[in-house]
C-alpha cells in the first residue's frame, strides 16, 4: 500500500451557538494515502464539510470553533501548528475546492490574479513567471483561450468554466492532497462528468491524493477506491468501494444504497426512503445515533453507542447488529 499522507484521529469539532456548544463532528478517524481517491458520503448536515474544513482549520478559532483530536499530515500535527505555518499547508500542501465556484471566487479580482495569488504566496517566483504558470494551468484544466480568460472576472465565465478555474487555483502549487467539497453539485450533469474526469485525471497524472466529499453515490462508485459513510457527525461505515456497494453492512448505508434510483428497477416501484429526518445537533440520540430511524433498532441500540467494528480486513461498521442484519 502507498504511503499514508493524511491521518485523522478522533477529530471533534464543536461550535459556539446560541444554544451552547454543539459538536458538529464527533470522533472522526480515517487515513488518506498517496494517489488515493477517498469518497466521503452522507446526507446534508452529516458533518462531511465540517470534517474537510476542520482539516485545514478554516473555521474561526477565536470565537466560533474548537478542534480536538489529531490531524497528522506526514509528520506535522496540523491542529498544533501555529497559524503562520498552517498557512503554508493551506493551498501549498493541501488544497480545497468548494461547491459554488461563483461565490468562492472573489468577484472583484480577475481570474488570473486569483490563480497567481497562490503561486506568489507559496513559491518564490516573479510575477511574470507566475503569470506564465497561471496561463499554463488554465490550459491544463481545459479552458480554451486561456490568455483571454486570464484577464476576465469570474462573473464573465460559465459555471463549468468557473469550476475549472477553481481547480486551477487549487492545483497551482501542486498539492499532495486535494479536498473537493461537493465539486459538482451546482453544475449541469454533462459538466459534472467533465469536472469529475478532470479531477480523476489530475489524481492519476500527479499522484495527488483526493478526498471527494459528495452525496452523489454514483460519482463515488465510479471514481473512488475507498468510501467513508458519515451520519450525524460520526463515521458509521468505511470500506473499499466494492465492499460498500456490494455488501453494505450498516443499516444507514443500506438505506442510502436502496434510495438510489436504478435503471433496472421496475416501473411504478417506489424508491426506498430512510424513515424520518436527520435530528438537530442539539437533539442527538443517546445510543446509536441512527437508532430512531433504523428499522432494525433494538433496546440496546437506543441505550448504548455501538463500537466501530471490523467486518473484514477492509470494512468497518458502527452497528450492534452487523452479524444479524
Amino acid at each position: 500500500m502507498a504511503e499514508s499522507i493524511l491521518k485523522v484521529k478522533d477529530l471533534c469539532t464543536s461550535f459556539n451557538t446560541e444554544r451552547g456548544r454543539l459538536k458538529a463532528i464527533d470522533g472522526v478517524s480515517f487515513e488518506v494515502h498517496k494517489g488515493e481517491m477517498l469518497g466521503i458520503v452522507g446526507e446534508s448536515g452529516c458533518g462531511k464539510s465540517v470534517t474537510s474544513q476542520s482539516i485545514l482549520r478554516l473555521y474561526d478559532e477565536k470565537s466560533l470553533a474548537k478542534y480536538t483530536g489529531e490531524v497528522r499530515f506526514h509528520d506535522s500535527s496540523l491542529l498544533d501548528l501555529p497559524e503562520k505555518e498552517m498557512r503554508h499547508v493551506r493551498g501549498e500542501k493541501i488544497s480545497m475546492i468548494f461547491q459554488d465556484a461563483l461565490s468562492s471566487l472573489n468577484p472583484v479580482f480577475t481570474v488570473g490574479n486569483q490563480i497567481m495569488e497562490s503561486l506568489l504566496i507559496h513559491k518564490s517566483i516573479t510575477k511574470k513567471e507566475a503569470k506564465e504558470k497561471a496561463i499554463q494551468l488554465l490550459k491544463d484544466v481545459g479552458i480554451p483561450d486561456p490568455v483571454r480568460r486570464f484577464y476576465q472576472y469570474p462573473f464573465e465565465l460559465s459555471g463549468g468554466m468557473r469550476q475549472r478555474v477553481m481547480i486551477a487555483v487549487a492545483l497551482a502549487c501542486e498539492p499532495e492532497l486535494l479536498i473537493a467539497d461537493e465539486p459538482t453539485t451546482a453544475l449541469d450533469v454533462t459538466i459534472q462528468a467533465q469536472i469529475m474526469d478532470l479531477i480523476v485525471e489530475m489524481n492519476k497524472r500527479r499522484g495527488m491524493g483526493v478526498m471527494l466529499i459528495t452525496h452523489d453515490l454514483g460519482v463515488v462508485a465510479e471514481t473512488c477506491s475507498k468510501v467513508i459513510v458519515m451520519y450525524l457527525g460520526q463515521i458509521v461505515e468505511e470500506g473499499l468501494v466494492t465492499d460498500i456497494f456490494d455488501h453494505p453492512m450498516h443499516p444507514y448505508t443500506i438505506g442510502l444504497m436502496e434510495s438510489v434510483p436504478r435503471l433496472d428497477s421496475k416501473t411504478g416501484e417506489r424508491l426506498h426512503q430512510i424513515k424520518g429526518t436527520v435530528p438537530l445537533l442539539n437533539q442527538i440520540p443517546e445510543g446509536c445515533r441512527f437508532a430512531p430511524r433504523c428499522p432494525h433498532a433494538t433496546e440496546l441500540c437506543r441505550k448504548k453507542m455501538p463500537e466501530f467494528l471490523e467486518v473484514s480486513d477492509t470494512q468497518k461498521a458502527r452497528c450492534h447488529r452487523i452479524n444479524e442484519i
Partner: peptide, 21 residues
Amino acid sequence: MTKTIDSSIENVYAGDRTEMK
C-alpha cells in the same frame, strides 16, 4: 434555527406521508 425546523416539517410532509401515521 427556525429554518431547520421549517425544513424538517417539509421533509416530514414530503418523505413520510405514507409511512408516518
